[in-house]
Design a binder for these strands. Structure first.
Lengths: 257, 257
DNA sequence: TATCCACTATAACTTTTGATGTAGGAGACG
DNA sequence: CGTCTCCTACATCAAAAGTTATAGTGGATA
């Protein structure tokens, strides 16, 4: 089911870590030369998946750690009758597969939304990383804690926000993250590429597809946002923030493994 | 608002780490003597809070890391009109305050359900721990990843399970954790002390208090569980598991800081 | 060009969940 | 001992969200 693609010579093929395009963005904390060499040596592979393919099945333990280099993906859980809950969305720089190393069993699946490319790190070397580079170990923990914060926020949405508030919070959250990564088009009102379908949004927010469509349209009609041609524009950020009580916090630089 | 209590000479006052009652339980992974001495030296205090008091306000950064030594607590977020979402419940051995070190701002509050006692570790020493004891650093990350798994499961409940399924999953989850800690009374059908009010359950599952009461009663009438006198008995684990699709996984030993 | 398919849109109707109100029981406390 | 407060129980009504059904749209594909 997961499809590999031929990647070498494509522009989104992850280069040597010293040439990493992500690392050039000031979204990420600088690393020392020694750390960079360690990461490069630890990386065992670079792979790609086509849009919609399964990066990790829900019922199978991860065999590696991945850093998402390009594209969008998501973590999810399902129930036997097909109900699916998206736990959080993964954007470039996010670390994938850490939970599996520590949890009692396989816990969630990971699917690609767009085409994605990944840097691969063998799980067996995680312990070495902790032993050899405490700074990088600290970074791993940082990334884990940050992801938990995202899930916390999603749980607040699913549990206690109504449909419109959930959508407002999600749009702001994703827009903020993409913008922080330098993915916003400043010449187009700060719009971002937005590959999610309404089905993704529904499954992330614990809503039915129909109700998601209804609520999304309501926000659109109120002039709060605009989605067209796979791009999202936030038209009235203040109103969206008031509605969802999801407020922008100045985002610090984040570690990148 | 948070109330300190005089603790010394009480039986639930955390003793020297070498005498730690938790550590004697086989729920926790053994540590080396060196690690134990390091933890003991890192611990700066031991404090207690009375039932219902605020361990950490929602709008204030944590100043320390805590390990819950005795009692039950929970992490939560609220919206301005008072809607509250409980993110997860904290039982003895759980680490508190790690997210704050890495998040961009204060993110959640922590309240005590019962009387609790805590071991205090200065946040400033977290970095030292990573540098000096990679094994303990690995444990910290382990605890963070395990907590995220719990939040993942709660998000699946809030987003995609109906009221009865949510309650079934929560009861099984808490019963399993308490049992793993050796808190079950084997002479009483494996019952556990259960200090949650229906209001806690409602806020953890994203339900109203009334609907929680309705659904809880339905499960009780069906003979699946029994709550009385502050104790929970699981009467029909199989039925609860089928209903919630929440299955027991053999729980490994967990690190304890 | 025609067909298919995934996605979005919308209406009509049902179910679940929430809101409001009221009451009873148990423990805390003066 | 009475009073208070917190928690649980339960009925009634209202609102939010889910279900079913149908159709349009645009890109991919044969």
């Amino acid at each position: 089911m997961p499809k590999l693609r031929q990647l070498v010579n494509r522009s989104d093929y992850p280069p040597a870590c010293s040439q990493c395009a992500l690392r050039k963005s000031d979204a990420f904390s600088p690393v020392s030369d020694a750390q960079l060499r360690y990461i490069e040596a630890m990386r065992s592979d670079r792979i790609g998946y086509s849009a919609g393919s399964h990066i990790k099945p829900e019922n199978q333990r991860a065999t590696a750690l991945y850093t998402l280099y390009s594209g969008w993906a998501f973590r999810f859980k399902t129930l036997s009758d097909g109900r699916r809950q998206i736990l959080n969305f993964l954007l470039p720089g996010d670390l994938i597969g850490l939970q599996e190393q520590f949890s009692d069993g396989p816990s969630h699946g990971v699917d690609a939304i767009t085409e994605v490319t990944l840097c691969v790190f063998p799980l067996t070397k995680l312990w070495d990383l902790f032993r050899d580079h405490s700074g990088l170990a600290y970074s791993v923990t940082w990334l884990a804690a940050r992801e938990e914060s995202n899930v916390d926020e999603n749980l607040l949405s699913a549990g206690r926000r109504n449909a419109s508030e959930r959508i407002a919070a999600l749009l702001l959250h994703l827009h903020r993250r993409a913008t922080h990564l330098g993915l916003a088009d400043l010449a187009d009102n700060g719009s971002i590429a937005f590959p999610l379908t309404q089905s993704h949004i529904a499954d992330a927010l614990g809503l039915s597809l129909i109700h998601t469509n209804r609520s999304l349209r309501k926000l659109h009609l109120a002039g709060l946002h605009h989605i067209e041609g796979g791009r999202l524009t936030i038209l009235n950020p203040k109103a969206l923030e008031r509605l969802s009580e999801y407020y922008d916090q100045p985002t610090r630089q984040v570690p990148l493994i």
